[in-house]
Design a protein around this nucleic acid. Structure first.
Length: 364
DNA sequence: CTTCTAATAT
DNA sequence: CATATTAGAA
């Protein structure tokens, strides 16, 4: 379903100064023209969604922000739907593409039951904004997309919103901690055959499970039986599946690095902080290596004092926030690494051209 | 063929 | 854990 295009539509100089939702609604209520109402609503929602995308990479640090934004968006969309109901549909029908039973029977009871669902779906779009590199070449991938009607309230330090994007977590952690395997982890483990190591299944999209553990990985290439039964014996598949460092994953990584005080962070700590399950120390280590190489390669224009510490060796937590703010300014320097999800320049992730983009957002 | 990146070896 | 080397893909 078409993710609403950012702002190529209705950019007619309606340039909002940020208002609170209440103010906005009040203001909206004095407008007579339905289509104008819708227009403004639409615009506002877009702004919110845009905002959401910006902080998308920082979910772990800003769970409440996500929550608030979500809430606002939901609310406004409901509002929009109300207009839509009691009126011929305005200009924008591309806007909300509710699937299914919206037009027919949902009319009256929409606000209660149905809208919830739709809202959830809208959110789901936002959360998994991208990278569905469905590299399911041979993927068997029997995932059961169990949509959770029960929204568990936050467990641990989690942000339960993240569970929404759940497209089914068929992910076999390399050395999954048993404690993590909740009821949701419905994984088909094709352990036929003698001695093959645990098949590595990874997914092509970000998936955050209920614990708030981000499960971010790569294409699902379930090792099927043909692998061993056919000519090639049990050697050969020794090499591990390549971990794909998606922008989200990298975002988490960078965040962790920052919270740990920069490049000298220890891989183990990074991994723990990222809370990505299935991620191994080695992978983090390797990635860190590349990271270090890159940051020393590009001096980052030394916008900051002394040894080009593109990272304020600051206290925990606030670093990322500060960098978010900064990352949106076109200026170079420290923002380079953080801006992978940050800047307004990035509309939404393209399909596939984003392989290495995050490392050199600018320059070149 | 070169470069880039993740895996693996030291 | 850090660094070096190797393997694979673009």
């Amino acid at each position: 379903m078409g993710l609403n295009s950012p702002e190529l539509n209705l950019d007619l100089s309606t340039f909002y100064v940020p208002k609170t939702i209440s103010e906005f609604l009040t203001e909206l209520s004095v407008i007579d023209d339905i289509s104008e109402k819708s227009l403004k609503l639409n615009d506002y929602v877009h702004m919110l969604e845009d905002e959401m995308r910006k902080i998308n990479g920082f979910k772990p640090q800003l769970p409440l922000c996500m929550l608030l934004l979500n809430d606002a968006i939901m609310r406004l969309k409901e509002e929009t739907m109300h207009y839509k109901e009691r009126d011929f549909r305005p200009v924008m029908e591309e806007f909300i593409s509710l699937k299914g039973n919206s037009d027919e029977d949902g009319r009256t009871k929409m606000s209660s039951d149905c809208s919830d669902k739709k809202n959830w779906m809208n959110i789901a779009q936002l959360w998994s904004t991208n990278i569905n590199r469905v590299t399911t070449k041979d993927s068997v991938l029997d995932i059961k997309a169990r949509d959770e009607e029960e929204n568990h309230s936050a467990i641990k330090n989690s942000f339960q919103l993240c569970s929404i994007g759940n497209k089914g977590g068929a992910f076999v952690p390399f050395r999954g901690q048993p404690s993590l395997a909740t009821k949701e982890e419905k994984v088909v483990l094709p352990i036929h055959g003698p001695s093959i190591r645990a098949p590595v299944a990874e997914m092509g999209f970000t998936d955050l499970n209920l614990e708030g553990n981000a499960k971010i990985g790569c294409a699902p290439s379930l090792v099927t039986d043909q692998m061993m039964s056919e000519g090639k014996s049990e050697h050969q598949q020794q090499k591990k599946q390549r971990r794909c460092w998606s922008p989200e994953l990298h975002g988490l990584f960078v965040n962790a690095i920052q919270q740990l005080g920069g490049a000298r962070a220890i891989p183990k700590q990074i991994r723990e902080l990222m809370q990505v399950d299935g991620l191994t120390n080695d992978e983090v280590k390797s990635h860190l290596q590349r990271y270090k190489l890159h940051i020393q390669k590009l001096p980052a224009s030394s916008a900051y004092p002394s040894n080009g510490s593109w990272l304020a060796r600051d206290q925990y937590g606030n670093v990322s926030m500060a960098n978010i703010g900064h990352s949106c300014s076109p200026q170079a320097g420290s923002g380079k690494w953080v801006s992978i999800t940050g800047c307004d320049s990035m509309e939404e992730e393209e399909d596939e051209k984003s392989e290495s983009h995050s490392w050199k957002v600018q320059l070149h």
